[in-house]
Design a protein around this nucleic acid. Structure first.
Length: 931
RNA sequence: GCCUAGGUGGUGGAACUGGUAGACACGCAGGACUUAAAAUCCUGUAUCCGUUGAGGAUGUACGGGUUCGACUCCCGUCCUGGGUACCA
């Protein structure tokens, strides 16, 4: 009887769906386990083979936890707002809601075919008004709150307002955009509008001016992804950076808690380190340099106040607010020209091209705060406006970039460290003793930092400060396909929240999804909607992609609740995500935002855990092979990648042409169909094509890249399922390599995995049908089984699914050799296999006579008796240090063990001819040789 | 540039804590069964030299180092993936 996977898989998928087998229980005394996948963005290309990698792994864990007796929550949903659907809408006029629904339907169909144990009754979609009602509601709470740094948590701003009215800012310690200071009288004298403006300085969701990529020609703000080499990707129009009034979230208020929380969660060190570096806490000092010949001062933040006597110039960012004010008339032209060039370069470019030194002298000077010496002020684009104060005190002796700048512009490089050569490069060491540094002379850098801060504070020219690299998160988008803000403006332009009863604020219908052209979002085109709140106009920006995804893990706990984003009972039972699986591309974006949202909701007492994701695994990305063909324009010739001899004849630069007209075999890419190619691209009608000399084929160059529709490298799981079945796909994706590693998709080994499943099937099936023996198992058979149980359990616990699949293969090979079809072995093996290949396991389980699903089984018990090997591996230690293992047969006495050990080459080599002082043998445990 | 991860046979990978490098699988070669094919099973398979019941040398991106012993630890270099704040 053949293994008919398609029949088996259809049958059991239908059974699971009809019985709601995987629904999480709500009234149970079982312990809970919440295992979550990062939900997908439903793209038009459909699900590709990369998506299931993490989903299969989490599915294995969820089924494994069920076998262990947990009440498992394993949900799935869709991150349904986003740019691609909107761009598609602009091109085709189709409402993004329609395309999104279609895409979701396709995803669902594909997901169902893989046999995931999802509780589909809990599905969420971020673009569903019933969902985004609560995204808007959480935004309202963020708007209504500020961060009290005394109690170290978010609180409602009414408390702050009352404090302002009675004591002013005197006793206020709150996270804010800029330090403010006023008395109660001053506060009370302000107009309502002025008061609202001041409160923006404190709110956790607030408005301010931030930079956007503005494309005049397209009349729209562009995402960084839409800007390539400084021009728009579409059309190649110039892009400038310009300030716009935008919403932001004050995530910086949570910087310390986001850092501290990392200590308490089970994430990889690499990921934690990335978050730490992103937050970028650094201790240092703010120092104020007085302007010469002008009012005011320039503030700098430095982590190295010890090097202050090495300052020979100052560099400020081209966007710095003082540039226009301090530039002297003689330098005006040059500075303006420089600012114009610099301001349109992206921060990325400015950081990448760090070796290309550029800058301009402003003509202005500041005074050194200790020596009073004049310090020239330059502008340079290596200083970023967004970090610190947008100004640095340049210490060329100690900082590489300052050094390069000084060398390039011939500025002095004062020596401040004893015995350190600075003729070739800067040296940032803190170990050397300070020289030429007045009161710091003779101290090391470490000592000098403290002393310098003391002195700076004493003289009132600055103070010690902790600075963060983390910036507040931009929260406005001038887009259609996102959550509308529950905000309206009065006639004075002051924003007000709508009433909670007005939620959800649904997206209005618009005629065009194109931007309005004035920089406003497409919502501004819906004139009736904008003005349909009496006396007010609506906010027309929408929320960013991360809004809905920052809290979706909470909604799964209680997805149908329409009186709260999550009910109290639900959140108290499910608490937080026990295991979160997703790609490392979300290391700092989504994973930081959702931690912040969760902490905020925790502060308001609405969730019970401060950290949302207890354990996190990053699965690697499955890459695609994009087919490019090599073209030599000088010869008007295309050449196959393997035609090496002919390639030598070709001169000039070659180009790579991306093409989808590669013959696509059932499982992947093959050679180019030249005829189809020239039909599709008539411009190459007369081009020459050089094929391989040996097999007369034309092969493309395959480039490993992220799988995406636009690169023609998406491989669909449906094809694999059709040919081999879902169980093979599941096991093969796990077999492909370590979960956390990225790897290009290939189907080279898939037949091996499929053969394994057939072998497992053949253990209990012959031509006639199901064939099971009720005889008791032999010791050898039990050994094969129990070795596997132990291995599989260990492997699941450490997420090593590829080695688990190998262990299954070894086990089945051994059982096949033993011709074992005994219930005593097959039954536990089937339960063991069910998380990996659930359909075939369910089928066999059913044939074994069980009426309940295999998920009602329990994980097989491992029995150590059957896994002891015939020989024991003795760890051999020298002087107590573990050195190596030696196989010693069982059942021999101490003396014989010693003889065997001493006769071993490695032991002899170790002793190098000398006799050991002592040989300690602990029977069955250890051999310790004291040399 | 910066942050982060990785680089092992023809291929995917294994080696979990410094202790026989290459488990398992693909591919390939040879064989059994078969009229034949498919399926299945058996044997071999890191490289080089030698051998055909003979062993030796080399070998985990590259160059150094620590250690009796290094894929594993340290220093440096090269290459690749991911992120870099409005893709998701």
């Amino acid at each position: 009887m053949e293994y008919n996977f398609s029949e088996i898989e259809t049958k059991w998928q239908g059974y699971w769906a009809a019985r709601k087998t995987f629904a999480a229980q709500s009234n149970t005394i079982k312990p809970k386990y919440y295992v979550l996948d990062m939900f997908p963005y439903p793209s038009g290309a459909g699900l590709h083979v990369g998506h299931p990698l993490g989903y299969i792994a989490s599915d294995i864990v969820s089924r494994y936890k069920r076998l262990q007796g947990f009440n498992v929550l394993h949900p799935m949903g869709y991150d349904a707002f986003g740019l691609p659907a909107e761009q598609y809408a602009i091109q085709t006029g189709q409402h993004p809601e329609v395309t999104t629904k279609d895409n979701i339907a396709r995803y669902r169909e594909q997901l169902d075919k893989i046999g995931f144990a999802y509780d589909w009754d809990r599905e969420v979609r971020t673009s569903d008004p019933a969902y985004y009602k609560w995204t808007q509601w959480i935004f309202m709470q963020l708007f209504k709150c500020y961060y009290n740094t005394k109690t170290n948590k978010a609180e409602y701003i009414d408390g702050l307002i009352a404090e302002f009215a009675t004591n002013g800012t005197a006793n206020v310690n709150a996270a804010c955009s800029e330090m403010m200071s006023f008395t109660a009288e001053e506060w009370n004298a302000k107009s309502a509008k002025e008061q609202q403006e001041i409160l923006m300085n404190y709110r956790l969701a607030y408005q301010s001016f931030t930079m956007v990529n503005w494309c005049e020609a397209l009349g729209t703000v562009l995402a960084n992804d839409e800007v390539v080499n400084g021009v728009s990707e579409r059309g190649g129009y110039p892009v400038e950076r310009k300030p716009m009034r935008q919403w932001s979230l004050r995530i910086t208020a949570y910087a310390d808690r986001l850092l501290e929380g990392l200590e308490r969660i089970d994430w990889s060190d690499a990921l934690k380190e990335q978050q730490r570096n992103w937050i970028g806490r650094s201790e240092g000092a703010m120092v104020s340099f007085k302007l010469k010949d002008n009012e005011g001062a320039i503030e700098v933040f430095t982590t190295r106040p010890d090097t202050i006597f090495g300052v020979s110039f100052m560099v400020i960012a081209p966007e710095h607010e003082l540039v226009a004010k301090i530039t002297t008339p003689e330098q005006k032209e040059a500075v303006e020209a420089y600012v114009n060039i610099a301001k349109n370069r992206s921060e990325r470019e400015r950081m990448t091209e760090v070796k290309r030194v550029s800058g301009e002298f402003t003509g202005a000077y500041v005074e050194h705060p200790f020596t009073g010496a004049p310090i020239p002020v330059w502008i340079g684009d290596y200083v970023l406006a967004g970090y610190g104060t947008g100004a640095v005190m340049a210490v060329p002796a100690g900082d590489e970039r300052d050094y390069a700048f000084a060398k390039h512009f011939n500025l002095p490089i004062p020596a401040i460290l004893e015995g350190i050569d600075i003729s070739e490069a800067a040296n940032p060491t803190k170990d050397a003793k300070m020289i030429n540094s007045d009161f710091l002379n003779g101290l090391t850098g470490y000592e000098a930092i403290k002393k310098a801060i003391e002195e700076i504070e004493k003289r009132g020219i600055g103070k010690g400060k902790v600075n963060f690299r983390l910036r507040d998160a931009g929260y406005s988008r001038q887009r259609y396909w996102g959550e509308p803000f529950p905000v309206v403006y009065d006639k004075e332009g002051t924003p007000h929240l709508l009433d909670e009863n007005d939620l959800p604020v649904e997206l209005p219908k618009v005629d065009s999804y194109k931007p309005s052209g004035s920089g406003e979002s497409p919502l501004a085109n819906a004139k009736d909607w904008v003005t349909n709140v009496e006396g007010f106009t609506r906010e027309t920006d929408t929320m960013p992609g991360y809004a809905g995804s920052s809290w979706y893990f909470l909604r799964y706990m209680d997805p149908k609740n329409d009186t709260a984003f999550v009910g109290k009972d639900a959140v108290e039972y499910w608490r937080s995500v026990d295991l979160y699986l997703g790609g490392s591309e979300h290391a700092v974006g989504h994973l930081l935002y959702s931690r912040m949202w969760n902490k905020f909701l925790f502060d308001l007492g609405l969730v019970v855990e401060d950290e949302p994701f207890k354990k996190l695994i990053n699965q690697g990305m499955i890459q695609g092979m994009s087919p490019y063909i090599d073209y030599y324009p000088e010869h008007d010739t295309f050449i196959s990648v393997f035609a090496d001899e002919e390639k030598k004849q070709l001169t000039g630069k070659s180009e790579r042409v991306l093409t989808h007209l590669v013959w696509y075999g059932p499982l992947g890419l093959d050679s180019l169909d030249i005829e189809a190619f020239v039909n599709f691209y008539p411009q190459y009608k007369n081009s020459k094509f050089i094929k391989n000399s040996d097999d007369n084929r034309f092969d493309p160059t395959l480039v490993v890249e992220k799988m995406s529709k636009s690169r023609y490298n998406v491989v669909n799981p449906d094809v694999i399922i059709g040919q081999y079945g879902a169980d093979t796909l599941r096991m093969y994706e796990m077999f492909l390599g370590p979960l956390e590693q990225s790897k290009p998709w290939n189907t080279n080994g898939i037949s091996g995995v499929h053969n394994f499943l057939r072998k497992y099937w053949r253990l209990t099936h012959n031509e006639a049908g199901f064939n099971l023996s009720e005889d008791p198992a032999t010791k050898e058979e039990l050994k094969a089984l129990h070795k596997t149980i132990k291995k599989i359990q260990d492997d699941i616990e450490r997420f090593s699914f590829n080695t688990a699949v190998s262990s299954f293969m070894i086990c089945v090979n051994e059982l096949a050799d033993l011709k074992c079809n005994k219930r005593a072995i097959i039954e536990p093996l089937t339960a063991l296999l069910s998380p990996f290949a659930p359909h075939i396991a369910e089928e066999v389980w059913n044939k074994l006579g069980h009426t309940e699903s295999v998920i009602e089984a329990s994980f097989p018990m491992y029995n150590a008796e059957y896994t002891v090997s015939d020989a024991f591996a003795y760890p051999i230690q020298f002087n107590g240090k573990m050195k190596f293992n030696l196989e010693i047969p069982l059942g021999i006495d101490k003396e014989e063990i010693e003889k065997l050990v001493m006769a071993d080459d490695k032991v002899q080599k170790q002793l190098a001819g000398a006799a050991p002082k002592k040989v300690i043998i602990v029977p069955g445990k250890i051999v310790n040789i004291v040399a």
